[in-house]
Design a protein around this nucleic acid. Structure first.
Lengths: 411, 411
DNA sequence: ATTATTTTTTAAATATATTAATAAATTAAA
DNA sequence: TTTAATTTATTAATATATTTAAAAAATAAT
């Protein structure tokens, strides 16, 4: 069995041309088909990829020799005729590490080729600051995770890392965090950890998780809204993540939506994020409490101020009226923004994700009614609104799957 | 030489498979390369499409037999070595008709395979109403144009028609105009005119014209803003027009942007179009005149009310202060909307088009300054802002080129 | 249980594309 | 002017993929 390094260099060998190039291309098409769809028979692949059965069979045996593909045996009875063999990715050949860096904690996990989180650690203590010390702490956590894995290091294709703010995944530069060096952040971390690093914007990675393994079915044009302290978005167009020119597409939180005087951390005034985000919810909730409103959150947390977003979400899910009211206010404003997105993107599906999505219908209903109110009905009639399915795991899943997509990618 | 019908059915024969399918695919790739890029040599095509030179040569001779491709002879001196032959589309083999339906007139033209408007009629008298009579008038004009063409009818691949409002190009339904029948509009017109009809949203068609033959160079993510009485947008993502689920993507004019009481013709309040469009400009200009402001427009047109948008544009281009001031007001609001687009799409290029773009810097500068004010600088720094280059011809060009793209399209 | 039917898989034959080699065209240098 | 160098175009030879046919595997019907 070839090592991951060998497979990697084979798959990305750019000096290859002619027949070898075409075979390599077809191999990647097969792998991508397995990854995006599922196991398949020779005949299915032949039809789908427009190559003859013998050719597909030849490449499948090569991929099996490489250790990437497995023969899963005879398919289920499908009526009459000989039952075909099903082929698919071999789970234990390659693994991917995903690191979801949140404001106050880290989630980290190891994914195999069958989309199983082999190992997963949630809410590892960490505080995100834009300092070298914070970066060192992050590296140390990843280092520790890499040590205790049920996989050889040469089986790990890379580490995907989600950060909030502006990220250019192609260059590896981060512009909002850990941007105190001349070199791209991905390079710095690769040097420290000795393993390929792939940076991505947090919302886009979460979106990718939902796209591949969550709420998205056959839909091709999908928007994923990450509702957390800030507001982020991941855009899928024609079945692929959309980046824009420099990887900054989807800055939904910083569109100008209000004529208020609240200064956003991006430096501008009136961003959607100033009134429709988790941080706006915390502010609104505190204001209402100060103004004399009552809530069970004070009982649960024994605090009278400095509530966390999670405290309010928990209160709402315990039927706390104040929390529910405040979420409705935020949701209405969020929905107005989403109405704009629907007019512009005419998506098949909009997914509400991020920590605020844990409030379920409390956020969904005001969003839905605002969409009706503010978008063209002909357009929004075509759009489904769903809640995210992966919850807290979305980020880690997405980060891992993005590493996979880079391994299988062509060019 | 094969007839257009033969070529058409060859190019879209779906029963073909195996080798014939692959050859057909490669033929279309070659044609698309010629269409999108320019003429090319065998070696260039071989490199670009990853096929061997003999294979490319074989298909090129076939395409020459079909009458679609022409040998343009030896290339310019490129230093040392044998000079290659350049091949490209043959201009007089196939033609496309484009019809740009405006509110108060029609532009109609005939395009050859070298992007030359062989015949072009501008501002043909017509008034767009949502009535069968208006539709009949439109068909009559097209019928008349088809009669006097310097091309046989069997050489015309189809007629592309631009309409404002919501269009689903796949089904051929129009939802804003001529929507009084059960059957799709494209079907109705095909039956009347006896030639394939392709409907498209007017702004998207204009955008496509600029993409293929106007202000767009190598950029892949581009937004085209159609500033007319209404506001429209065409979106190019990854080098291709973006439609969204039902072809309604890009409804920029109807995003909710103001808390005003002006009812938009879409039925909602506060649309961007109510304050940042040509119709808003006309309203603003009239109000300022009524309030006592002076303008040369009253002298030129000898009217004291009922100004057309073109009157105000002409006045501005004659340095009329009131017109320039009003355009700046509209431009500032338009720019605020475009800032939102930039945050969401992170485009390479934004093109200002439509009749208002004829005011040049008068509209460009306020738009530009609003973009600086309202979008994330990291994102907007990456975006260029250009004026459209095709002017009034954009719609006809786009309509023709869209027919072409459907002829060459695969699937 | 045997035979017919259907489908996948393998194998052989055919068709096809690529590679390598040659010829042709062009420029620069001898 | 001739020769060498360079690149393209064409051809012939080789490698490759596809097609066709045959075999194998599975099920249903007789």
């Amino acid at each position: 069995m070839a090592t991951i390094k060998k497979i990697f260099s084979d798959l990305h060998n750019e000096s290859i041309d002619g027949v070898a190039y075409k075979n390599l291309h077809l191999k990647k098409q097969i792998l991508t088909y397995f990854a995006n769809t599922s196991d398949a028979t020779i005949t299915e692949l032949s039809r789908e990829l427009n190559f003859s059965a013998p050719k597909i069979a030849e490449l499948l045996t090569e991929l099996q020799k490489d250790g990437l593909v497995k023969d899963y045996g005879k398919a289920e009875d499908s009526g009459v005729g000989r039952r075909p063999n099903r082929y698919g990715l071999k789970p234990n050949s390659i693994f991917f590490v995903g690191v979801d860096v949140k404001k106050f904690h880290i989630n980290i996990g190891l994914l195999d080729l069958k989309n199983t989180l082999v190992k997963y650690q949630e809410k590892v203590a960490f505080t995100l600051n834009n300092t070298p010390k914070s970066l060192d702490a992050l590296c140390a956590i990843i280092q520790g995770f890499l040590k205790g894995l049920p996989a050889r290091k040469d089986q790990i294709a890379g580490v995907g890392i989600n950060l909030s703010g502006r990220i250019n995944y192609k260059t590896g530069y981060s512009y909002s965090f850990f941007n105190f060096s001349e070199e791209p952040l991905s390079k710095i971390m690769e040097d420290k950890l000795g393993i390929p690093i792939y940076l991505e914007n947090d919302s886009r990675a979460m979106a990718y998780g939902e796209f591949c393994n969550g709420a998205v079915g056959p839909e091709k044009d999908v928007l994923y809204i990450n509702m957390d302290y800030g507001i982020g978005m991941g855009v899928m167009i024609n079945g692929q993540l959309y980046y824009g020119k420099s990887g900054f597409a989807g800055e939904f939180g910083h569109i100008h939506a209000f004529n208020n005087e609240i200064i956003c951390h991006c430096g501008k005034k009136g961003c959607l994020e100033t009134e429709a985000s988790g941080q706006a919810l915390v502010r609104l909730f505190s204001e209402r409490l100060c103004a004399g409103a009552t809530s069970i959150v004070t009982k649960i947390t024994r605090k009278t101020q400095d509530f966390l977003l999670d405290d309010i979400i928990a209160a709402a899910n315990h039927d706390d009226v104040l929390a529910i009211e405040c979420i409705a206010v935020i949701g209405e404003k969020m929905g107005e923004g989403i109405a704009t997105l629907i007019n512009l993107f005419n998506p098949d599906l909009v997914i509400l994700g991020g920590s605020l999505s844990a409030t379920g219908a409390y956020i969904r209903l005001p969003v839905k009614s605002a969409i009706f109110k503010y978008s063209l009905s002909l357009v929004s009639n075509e759009t489904h609104l769903k809640m995210a399915e992966l919850g807290e795991k979305a980020g880690v899943m997405g980060a891992c799957l993005l590493v996979r997509s880079r391994l299988f990618a062509f060019e």
